[in-house]
Design a protein around this nucleic acid. Structure first.
Lengths: 311, 311
DNA sequence: CATGTTAAG
DNA sequence: CTTAGCATG
């Protein structure tokens, strides 16, 4: 095992130089200046974040990051690329990129050293995978249904399938709970099919907090999207097919560990959050999992990134 | 003739103190304004703007300002109130305030010392009049048609009617030219009715450049909204009923005098503008007009303010 | 290119 | 509260 010391790859899709600048100072109007001042002071880092793996004691060979960026173009202005460069993961899974077409993808997002796969479409959440190693195969969305939802990318590697996804949100007043449950059925079936061939790593925003420990206000959210019995049971069912929620496996009693905080009500400062983003892996793959870290203080979205360390 | 030396009014709708920092509550003559050393430097002012009436040689009793603010809440962030306090007009006409309801009006907009009249509605341009002297009567919109368009306010004073309006834009591809021409018909009729009783001052964005001298690129805009033959003839027709375009009357040969510049193409820096905003007055009232100044370097909107000085 | 609006989260 | 989309200018 080595400590993330891969040789520099040749640039696969982009021949730009990597800029030393932190943020390219895009011209702004007077009104934007206020906002940008806050963004500018490296937006999403603290000193302790700088050595980003300072708390990872064990060796690891592979690092995977997943982040619901809630609009990649906005997140870009808040330091997305600088964070990703610092994280230097082998595989980057982004969701809710909210980019409607290929030609709207800012070129800065296509970080050199990575192959870039986007599954995007107008009005849809959109997901992306950036990967240093070229996958054997990459496919978009589910095979039967929701095939134009731009919610899921499957990347097949030598030793596993990586399924990065943004699961259907049950919506205000649970108005899309039915669609969500239909998604669960098709998704579970799809995952099980993959699992017959190779271990599966599911990464992304599963839009559910599994248990009371996974959100700040379980009592008042019994009928809120993300904590209904139906959604929670759906997550239990997924695990029952032979999968493990890596974070909870590693930190079974850890309270206050969330990955999402509403932009409203100053929720992040008060840590009134939800754990909605996960790495879920095939049981037999758990032995390869070294750690799963929630990057709580990386800003730029209403979600924070999660990192999975593999040996 | 007095020099803008009205007795201090009692505060009509708001009991806040008027800050000495911005404008002394005591009225000043134009000369005193010139001599006073105000400290607050505004985002949208230049040194020569600071003594805002420096170029008005004659005495005046009344000052009226009209400004298409292109969103009053945005303009507020860019110094709208500071400018208005500095201008210290007797009557302020704002259009395109783009505020959908009374409760969305920021309280800072309700400048003490003025009575405030808003004609606003969801999705409509919206207009407002602030006035130090309470009008005899204030009415909204045209009497027959477009009565819910929130485009026009009529304030009746002792000596004149003031009609502040935002005229229908003929639209991209002239798709609302018909509506515009229908507006012209009803508007002309309305103005003529008022003119039978008292002189009329029309103030606002008339959404037309009358002649080639009134825009930077007349040749290429023959079929653009604001410079079609139909709209130009409409303006000629309005004048034919006995009205005068005060700016052109005072400065018949002045080129490059515009009141609007597209936000696009760096138009303002290049002065590729249009004269779309006017004071148009009854012929018999012209003797009361001292000057009409275009405040070219007041920023905050894609239009600039216009000031009418009356004796 | 900017504003306010909407729908989604 | 924030984003991206849209319609209007």
């Amino acid at each position: 095992t080595k400590k993330n010391t891969k040789a520099a790859k040749k640039e696969p899709e982009n021949d730009e130089e990597i800029s030393d600048e932190i943020v390219s100072p895009k011209k702004k109007t007077a009104k934007q200046v206020n906002g940008s001042a806050e963004k500018k002071k490296l937006l999403n880092s603290t000193e302790s974040d700088y050595n980003i793996d300072f708390n990872i004691k064990k060796d690891f060979a592979t690092k995977i990051v997943t982040w619901n960026v809630a609009g990649a173009r906005s997140c870009l202005q808040k330091g997305l690329v600088e964070y990703l460069r610092r994280e230097n993961a082998d595989i980057i899974c982004l969701n809710e990129v909210k980019i409607g077409s290929e030609k709207e993808i800012p070129k800065e997002l296509k970080i050199p050293e990575y192959y870039h796969y986007f599954n995007i479409g107008k009005g849809n959440p959109g997901v992306a995978i950036f990967t240093k190693k070229k996958p054997i195969k990459v496919t978009n969305d589910l095979p039967e249904i929701f095939t134009n939802d731009n919610r899921l990318i499957t990347a097949e590697y030598e030793d596993f399938y990586l399924v990065s996804c943004y699961v259907v949100n049950a919506g205000q007043g649970l108005k899309t709970l039915d669609k969500r449950l239909e998604w669960n059925r098709v998704f579970d079936k799809y995952i099980q099919e993959l699992d017959k061939e190779k271990p599966v790593i599911i990464a992304g925003d599963l839009n559910v907090s599994h248990n009371e420990i996974d959100l700040a206000n379980p009592k008042s959210n019994q009928r809120s999207a993300g904590f209904t019995k139906e959604e929670r049971d759906g997550f239990t069912k997924l695990l029952s097919y032979g999968f493990i929620d890596t974070f909870r496996e590693l930190y079974p009693k850890q309270e206050g560990a969330y990955t999402f905080w509403s932009y409203r009500f100053n929720a992040r400062a008060k840590n009134t959050g939800w754990r909605l983003d996960y790495f879920v892996v095939s049981e037999r793959f758990m032995e390869n999992v070294v750690d799963n870290v929630i990057r709580t203080n990386i800003l730029g979205s209403d979600h924070c990134p999660l990192v999975l360390f593999l040996n």
